[in-house]
Design a binder for these strands. Structure first.
Lengths: 200, 200
DNA sequence: CATTTGCAATGACATTTGTCATATCGTGAC
DNA sequence: GTCACGATATGACAAATGTCATTGCAAATG
């Protein structure tokens, strides 16, 4: 019997998924969590075979929780589940050692099959995202990411210059480079694009 | 037997919810859709008692689909389901004549109970959102919404001025007013805030 | 009828943004 | 050792943004 920890912040979706997984002859949901912190705690307590983690959760997201679970519950295999096809997130998931990364637009049978495959020792990652992740190496330099992060946090060019000990012209130049690399026309658009690619 | 149309773009969530609803003795999911357009089409074809519509769907969202279904399938009662607690969206749902507006962070029993209550003729809206909707009247004028929509669609001040047959100064002034009303410091922030409040 | 208020509309002006040319440094290739 | 390249860093300048003062109009209020 495959023992599953399910982490999903939307109760309705959590209930529904748990019910479906319990339907499978060889699976049972033994623990649930509604955020990353709780997921890590439950993983340690219940020692599940599989941790099925939503990526977008409050307090601590699925990616961070995955990293911690893989560290502290070595026999637990981690599968991430998400709405968004973000190659950068999947890249991070792979680098953290996750065993699977699936999108919610798949069918239940696919989820069950993926869980079984992971139990057999396979790693299941969305093929298209695999290619996208390889194709889309993060083009941003460290400083470009620094300034984009500042913009994301609502800082002005002046404030960024102060925080990073740079001149305003330098900050503007990094932002301009980042805007160009993201194929955008404003710093806010560049932030969103970088985030959606998982580069920030 | 309550006949339900379920519209949800994530297949996994759709499958899971349909299974749970089919579990109820008095309910059956007779049709499914993965976007607003398909939801309207399926509502016309299958004539369900209840249309359960996710708000965030591609092509046409649940709110727009709700309006159309209420127009063209008068015996069908519409319940909207969403992740985001946006008073403005619920306001629109009420104004369109929807019979319910629920959040996905509720439990399955609550959903089933809401469906039964709506069948009995009740209207089920999230109490806290009701208060928030009343408290947060949309402060934006028509023109302010016009210019914010333009910004959301990526238009520059010049392009907006042309599209709306206004001068650039006028467009900037409306944007400035909107930014101020949203308590923001940039037009992009104002767009996001207005959207998150359901005012756009 | 006069006044007030909110909306629609405009342009002047200060500030911010984004582009561009430029310089320095470290690293890798030849 | 020289050269090319990418990253880091800077300031000048044109364009865009946001604020502000202002005007006109319609509707509501006294």
């Amino acid at each position: 019997m495959i023992r599953i920890l399910l982490a999903e912040d939307q109760m309705l979706v959590c209930d529904a998924l748990a019910t479906l997984l319990d339907f499978e002859d060889d699976m049972t949901v033994i623990a649930r969590a509604s955020d990353g912190l709780a997921a890590v705690r439950e993983a340690k307590r219940a020692q599940p075979d599989i941790a099925l983690l939503d990526v977008e959760m409050p307090h601590q997201g699925g990616l961070d929780a995955a990293e911690e679970i893989l560290q502290s519950v070595p026999d637990c295999k981690v599968i991430l589940l998400t709405t968004f096809a973000r190659p950068g997130y999947m890249q991070r998931a792979i680098q953290a050692g996750a065993h699977g990364y699936l999108l919610k637009d798949g069918e239940v049978e696919q989820l069950a099959a993926a869980i079984r495959a992971v139990m057999r020792g396979e790693r299941i990652f969305h093929p298209a995202l695999m290619m996208a992740a390889i194709a889309s190496e993060n083009p941003l330099s460290m400083r470009e990411r620094d300034v984009l992060r500042g913009v994301k946090n609502g800082l002005t060019t002046k404030e960024l210059a102060r925080d990073l000990s740079l001149s305003e012209g330098t900050v503007r130049n990094y932002l301009s480079e980042a805007i160009s690399k993201m194929n955008c026309t404003s710093r806010q658009d560049a932030v969103r694009r970088a985030e959606s690619m998982g580069w920030l």
